[in-house]
Design a binder for these strands. Structure first.
Length: 216
DNA sequence: ATCCCGAGGG
DNA sequence: CCCTCTGGAT
């Protein structure tokens, strides 16, 4: 059973909150539309790079309709440095076109509606629901969350959907959004992909990886 | 070389 | 399950 696992997860959460009291969404945005665009841009690309692009982008395109009518080539050039720019430009324009034409210019606030937008998967939908609408419909599973959850023994799964389900089963729902931000903060600073700095980690005693891979 | 808050398609 | 799409930072 997962009774012990739940307690462990809650303790991990408690200590991470102490260590990263300011953990939050690091993508710059002022409204759901901007977060939608920024999140599409963030695929396989750091938030810092997305944040370098968005000021000019949001100055040039101010509404879903603006994005929907964007010249594809111009949009591509503006987001070039985020990588996958052709797909992303197409997805931004297509998603905003649906928002403009089918949702009256407002980004929808349900999982089902968000998933119906082209270029929006579970991950992007969770980011928007959690950070714009205060909803915990699921847990954002990015590469950090996936890697750390496995290292800590909170899941053994590899597929993001399965990892998400495992995490949802052991974490209090009201903490789902914060949990992602905390693990991402930990992943960027300490629990990195190649050389995790276990001695600096606030939860090495609760982590399978730290216990069997003692550093130095 | 490896990694970055992915999604869609085969 | 696999693959592709892309560029910049380290």
């Amino acid at each position: 059973m997962s009774g012990g696992l739940k307690k462990r997860a809650v303790e991990i959460l408690r200590r991470l909150k102490q260590r990263f009291p300011d953990a939050r969404c690091t993508l710059d945005h002022r409204n759901p539309l901007q977060l939608l665009v920024a999140t599409i841009l963030s695929a396989q690309c750091t938030d810092e790079r997305v944040n370098k692009i968005t000021p000019a982008l949001f100055g040039r395109y101010r509404s879903a309709e603006d994005f929907a009518q964007a010249d594809l080539h111009e949009l591509e050039q503006m987001i070039r440095s985020a990588g996958f720019y052709r797909n992303k430009a197409k997805n931004i324009r297509a998603a905003c076109s649906v928002v403009a034409n089918h949702y009256g210019g407002r980004v929808p606030d349900t999982m089902e509606e968000l998933l119906s937008l082209p270029g929006v998967g579970r991950k992007t939908a969770n980011v928007i629901l959690g950070n714009c609408f205060g909803k915990n419909e699921g847990i954002v599973v990015d590469t950090h969350v996936a890697r750390i959850s496995r290292r800590m023994g909170l899941t053994r799964a590899n597929v993001p959907e399965k990892i998400e389900r495992d995490l949802m089963a052991i974490l209090p729902r009201e903490e789902w959004t914060l949990f992602s931000h905390l693990l991402i903060a930990l992943g960027r600073s300490i629990c990195k992909a190649n050389r995790p700095d276990c001695p600096s980690c606030p939860v090495p005693d609760l982590c399978d990886y730290a216990r069997k891979e003692p550093v130095d």
